[in-house]
Design a binder for these strands. Structure first.
Lengths: 193, 193
DNA sequence: GGCCTATCTTTTCATTGTAAAGATTCGTCG
DNA sequence: CGACGAATCTTTACAATGAAAAGATAGGCC
């Protein structure tokens, strides 16, 4: 029996919106200086709270990053769902790259399970929702979801996004090249099975 | 005028082979627990030397990772050069994935410039050698190196390796699937230019 | 045989993550 | 409206870390 609340306790309280604020500051800090230089104390200072305030909300540093990753998976699912239904696989691939570049901190953390509490319930759920959204995208192109082709499609856009984010590839127009790169994918050509 | 030395000073000295030992221990430690949990002091202890010994050789933690990344780029160039000359682009792609899985610590660090002294001379040189080796691989398939197709080829194998290393994809036979995935790449299909 | 320099140690310090216990504020219910 | 309980935040403390500084050791060279 849960009582009716006027608003969600987990996000509103004394400070106002500390949990949400901390997540936003974390994403910003990581985008600026990378995950390695992320400091809980500096984060707290920037949010105008005490050292231990972040720890209360997220348990520990991994918990903070876990929450960020979970948020990232939900944002990814949202981004994939936002693609036009009559758009092809390439459009979905470009949307994937667009997401990675728009939310680099989320994207980075999402694929570094070593930094996370990988079995966290909310993380697992969010990840599953994102995987579902991706599979649906592939399925709409008349391919089996979870097929080798699905993995290939995922690989090419994920790899391109990663290379751009790492600075290994520096195109003039990222999304344009993303479209071209994704265009080099073909469905047939099974070598062996 | 450099004097003749019986052996390379930079790798042999009191301890015997500390620099090399530390690099090996670093790769091992990262493979076990990830870069984030890498500790200079724990590393020194495992090598049987004092706290500050690693700092002497690498300047700081970033310097250590920089040296590891540089080593990684050389190993990658070596791996790409080892592919049969009559092997196609797919063989080279599989070799790329094979390298990433055989040297996960090197591979991880190589593409995280935030962790490194990105303008380090040896790193820059090693990276350039690796890029050259990759370009040669693409060029042997009658494509322009540094073309969009080259980026696409790199993206698909790099993405696949990354997804496998992150645990997002868990195939029964990695190299077999790597070959299939790389097989979904096609050279034509320029959308716009 | 003595000197120079590369290699390594000892010591120290500021910073960090996080645990523990206390203070404060909010909502709820009598 | 007032007090209780729980959620939220602070204060304090501690061990571990990266790194700087200065000293010790030993190997090679004249």
């Amino acid at each position: 029996m849960e009582s009716l609340l006027r608003y969600d306790r987990s996000v509103t309280y004394h400070h106002g919106d500390l949990r949400r604020t901390l997540l936003a500051e974390t994403a910003s800090a990581i985008a600026d200086d990378g995950v390695a230089k992320l400091s809980m104390r500096a984060l707290a200072k920037r949010a105008g709270v005490s050292n231990a305030a972040p720890t209360y909300h997220f348990g520990d540093k991994s918990g903070l990053l876990t929450a960020l990753a979970a948020e990232g998976f939900d944002l990814l699912a949202e981004a994939m769902a936002g693609v036009d239904d009559d758009g092809g696989l390439i459009d979905r691939g470009v949307a994937y790259v667009e997401f990675a570049l728009a939310r680099p901190s989320h994207f980075t953390v999402m694929f570094q399970p070593r930094l996370l509490h990988d079995d966290d319930a909310e993380l697992v759920a969010a990840r599953q929702r994102a995987w579902a959204a991706l599979s649906v995208g592939v399925a709409k192109t008349r391919s089996e979801p979870d097929s080798d082709f699905g993995v290939a499609a995922w690989s090419i856009v994920h790899g391109y996004a990663t290379l751009v984010l790492s600075g290994a590839v520096e195109p003039d127009d990222v999304l344009k090249q993303a479209r071209i790169v994704a265009g080099h994918l073909v469905e047939g050509a099974d070598t062996d099975r």
